[in-house]
């Protein structure tokens, strides 16, 4: 695959955007009396060189990456699924249903994992159907369904599935038979992410369905002009993204938390949106972006420890990154202009 000048400018612009965000954040660290070089070094060491840190980073990266992969597909179709958070939670809830209520023992984690994924997919298909049949904006519906999923989670965690032994709002730990195995010392999710990424790349760039999705995203009118089936694109695209968010939710339940609690997701579904954008909605870039972003999220606590920066200030970094990424399209032009001058 040959890189066009535009792609090169874009890459340079992304690196530049991240560098500027890092530079500004260094200023913040200095403001709090820290040493940015030391802070970033330790952050990197804790997130990638420490064996436990690396495992945790990879766990976060795989959840984030699997959600982002799904988002990269719908975003390519120009559909804004803001509901990955809810689909993730519902995936965990459905897996919990299989474990706590049905008690389906056969197949170990496989049944809850697949049912979790499927439920996430169907949950995302609801806004898809509303969009397809009634033209309801999916941004609103997906966002609202996040709250529905969240309140459902509260309902079971505070109510029917609460651990009767302790009375605390946490469900009981799942038996060992249900737990996802590790792969090469890492959570199984990492392997799943690395399998899904090329599959989605193939879907998007080498199948007719992927082509139609992209056409629909670039120009809806043109897709209708060419007579494409809107239902397959809208409902199907949202279903795929929900499927993967649900898979991540079920995976985290079966592979790392082993239980449900009120803060089952601390905003992963929203962070995944940033990761997908950071990766230009490209399935082969998403895993890289999610690993870097997970490292950053994980390491942000090091900043709080080493540089005494309030944890909340990491949101500043996320915000900065987002702002810089939004401005990359302008930067692309400067860089193109500069490249021609040199």
């Amino acid at each position: 695959m040959e890189l066009s000048p535009m792609q090169i400018y874009r890459g340079v612009a992304t690196i530049l955007a991240v560098s500027i965000a890092v530079a500004v954040y260094s200023g913040v660290i200095i403001l709090y009396g820290g040493d940015p070089v030391e802070a970033y070094t330790k952050m990197f060491r804790n997130a990638f060189l420490d064996p436990y840190g690396l495992r945790e980073t990879m766990r976060l990266a795989s959840a984030l990456g699997i959600i982002s992969l799904g988002l990269s597909i719908v975003f390519r179709a120009g559909l804004w699924n803001i509901g990955a958070e809810g689909q993730y939670v519902l995936g965990g809830l459905a897996a919990g249903y299989v474990v706590y209520v049905l008690g389906l023992q056969q197949g170990g984690p496989l049944a809850p994992l697949l049912i979790g994924a499927l439920t996430g997919g169907l949950y995302a298909a609801i806004p898809g159907v509303l969009r397809w049949r009634l033209g309801v904006n999916e941004v609103l519906t997906t966002l609202m369904l996040n709250y529905v999923a969240l309140y459902l989670l509260y309902y079971v965690v505070y109510g029917v599935w609460r651990d009767p032994q302790t009375g605390f709002p946490v469900t009981p730990e799942i038996p060992g038979a249900y737990r996802l195995p590790e792969v090469g010392g890492f959570v199984g999710g990492l392997a799943i992410m690395l399998l899904i990424a090329p599959a989605l790349y193939y879907l998007l760039f080498h199948t007719r369905y992927g082509f139609k999705l992209r056409v629909y995203g670039l120009n809806r009118e043109a897709a209708e002009y060419a007579g494409y089936d809107r239902r397959a694109i809208i409902v199907g695209g949202l279903f795929i993204s929900g499927l993967l968010a649900g898979l991540a939710g079920a995976g985290d339940f079966l592979g790392s938390y082993y239980r449900l609690m009120p803060r089952f997701s601390s905003g992963l579904g929203y962070t995944a949106i940033i990761v997908a954008l950071l990766a230009y909605n490209h399935p082969l870039i998403v895993p890289i972006a999610s690993i870097l972003f997970a490292g950053f999220l994980y390491g942000s606590y090091t900043l709080a420890i080493v540089a005494d920066i309030p944890t909340e200030a990491t949101y500043l970094m996320t915000g900065l990154l987002l702002a810089m990424l939004v401005s990359t399209q302008y930067m692309e032009r400067w860089i193109g202009w500069l490249a021609r001058r040199l």
């Binding site: 082509f211 992209r214 056409v215 670039l218 120009n219 009118e221 043109a222 897709a223 002009y225 060419a226």
Partner: peptide, 17 residues
């Protein structure tokens, strides 16, 4: 403009049709 896909190549603009 409703009959073309911006961002796609000329070939893909034939293919999509």
């Amino acid at each position: 403009y409703s009959a073309m896909v911006p961002g796609m190549s000329l070939v893909d603009n034939v293919r999509f049709r």
